[in-house]
Design a protein around this nucleic acid. Structure first.
Length: 425
RNA sequence: GGGGAGAUACCAGAGCGGUCAAAUGGGGCAGACUGUAAAUCUGUUGGCGCAGCCUUCGGAGGUUCGAAUCCUCCUCUCCCCA
């Protein structure tokens, strides 16, 4: 399978250095992408580069995941308007461990032919003395060359520290190191990494006379111009403790048609034929949202599990399907709990409920679903509040035992998509 | 070191003694229409015991019956000169 060809139809190539494709066809090579260990979990923004590695491995090459223990301590100025906060070493170490576990779900580290490799640039940078660095790396590139980088230019107005300015050399040296020790000939990354990657290939050329390649993918955007991978709650994480499988699944299911068509090529492994078929099917009957479902399934199963996907689907069906109050009431407790596993929950004292709680107090002070009573009232006025799937409009309504499902639960909806499960304790 | 401009709600940005909880745009949230889509339209966007009250316009004081608006000091940002 032709790696470049594969990425090309998936729309995952933004820029590619001439000769890359030919080189990859000629011999088995290794390529790397860098991952900043700024948190103890990856989020879906990382997924693009990970999918590039995945395809790379599927095409018979060797993928290298480089955890930026060293570079993470410096901070990449690319795409940042301000100087970055530096991370402490032990935090970085912890994050690296967690990230590695997540990578295992994507890459095959045990293959006998082309096992994936994980490295940490801290290991070769930590004992690199300043003087050696200047002599071995700094000597080969001019300040003029470094200044010309877009990432540097953009920061000239507001200023950037020497540390950040040097970042590209450190990243460049990573490439050189992998070139020499792991037969790495290619670095991939987001399009904002182009400048840094090219510094690496340049360094390799000047220092060893060898040739290395670069390939970047477009930054993922949303059709409405918003930031990809962000929701109201923030990042969409791979760690189920940070983003529940249900929410994770919902994120993908909720994509607009336009985005789904783009994402399915990038984030799933469906073949070109399968994808084309789904695109056609979707065009014919868009309301079935074949694309969103297929996308959500593929990626939820890969990141979490088949079972998590099943649960997310059944939860979604109950929450968004034709589910009525009757259907909800007839749900067995175990089912109800599993459906709402990924939904925010809170407990309320049973005595309070038996005594009766004014609706507004219940929504704000008691459950903290709303940060203020005013907001709860507003939403109520807009008709955005549902109890057990029933729209409520009476501000003076008293929440009482009569509202409890199976004698224990109350399902509160804020708008169409936000659910809260309240349990009487 | 010298001179100038500025700091307003999530962001941008009006207001320059009372009618200002603060124009307008963007964003957010919700409603209608739909397909948990897009587009469009509508509402809403400091708190509360909500025809009223309380806390907000970089910070601290002051003038005034009354300050986002005037004065003093402080902090920070930007621009020009050295």
């Amino acid at each position: 399978m032709n790696f470049v060809e594969e990425l090309r139809w998936r729309g995952m190539i933004h820029d590619i250095m001439p000769g890359t494709e030919e080189h990859l066809l000629k011999e088995t090579t290794s390529a790397y992408v860098g991952i900043d260990p700024t948190a103890d979990s990856l989020h879906i923004g990382h997924l693009v580069s990970i999918m590039m590695l995945k395809h790379f491995q599927l095409c018979g090459h060797i993928p290298i995941a480089l955890v930026g223990g060293a570079t993470g301590m410096i901070g990449d100025p690319s795409g940042k308007s301000e100087e970055r906060v530096l991370l402490a070493e032990d935090t970085l170490r912890h994050n690296q461990e967690c990230i590695k576990k997540q990578l295992l779900r994507f890459l095959d580290f045990d293959s006998r032919i082309n096992p994936a490799i994980m490295v940490n640039n801290y290991d070769w940078m930590k004992d690199f003395s300043f003087l050696s660095f200047l002599r071995e790396v700094g000597k080969h590139l001019t300040v003029n060359y470094m200044m010309a980088k877009d990432s540097v230019q953009k920061r000239l107005e507001t200023g950037l520290s020497f540390t950040e300015f040097t970042y590209q050399l450190v990243q460049g040296y990573d490439f050189l190191h992998l070139y020499e020790h792991h037969h790495c000939r290619l670095q991939m990354g987001g399009s904002d990494q182009w400048g840094n990657i090219v510094t690496g290939t340049e360094l390799i050329r000047r220092k060893t006379g060898g040739t290395a390649y670069a390939l970047t993918c477009p930054l993922i955007t949303k059709a409405d111009g918003g930031k990809f991978g962000k929701t109201e709650e923030g990042n969409v994480w791979l760690d189920p403790a940070r983003t529940s499988p249900y929410r994770f699944y919902q994120f993908w299911l909720n994509c607009t048609d336009e985005d789904a068509a783009k994402y399915i090529k990038i984030f799933s492994l469906y073949t070109k034929e399968e994808t084309d078929a789904m695109l056609a099917e979707h065009q014919a009957a868009p309301h079935l949202r074949v694309l969103q479902k297929a996308l959500a399934k593929d990626i939820t199963v890969r990141v979490h599990s088949e079972q998590d996907h099943q649960q997310a689907v059944s939860a979604s069906e109950i929450l968004f399907g034709k589910g009525t109050e009757e259907a909800l009431k007839s749900l067995p407790e175990a089912m109800l709990l599993s459906v709402f596993e990924g939904v925010p929950q809170c407990d309320v004292s049973r005595d309070l409920i038996t005594a009766g709680i004014p609706l507004i107090d219940f929504l704000s002070e008691i459950t903290e679903i709303f940060p203020s009573k005013g907001e709860a009232r507003r939403m109520l006025k807009d008709g955005g509040i549902l109890l057990n799937k029933q729209k409520v409009s009476d501000e003076n309504l008293l929440i009482s035992a009569a509202h409890l499902l199976i004698g224990r639960y109350i399902l509160v909806q804020k708008g169409k998509k936000n659910y809260y499960l309240v349990t009487a304790k």
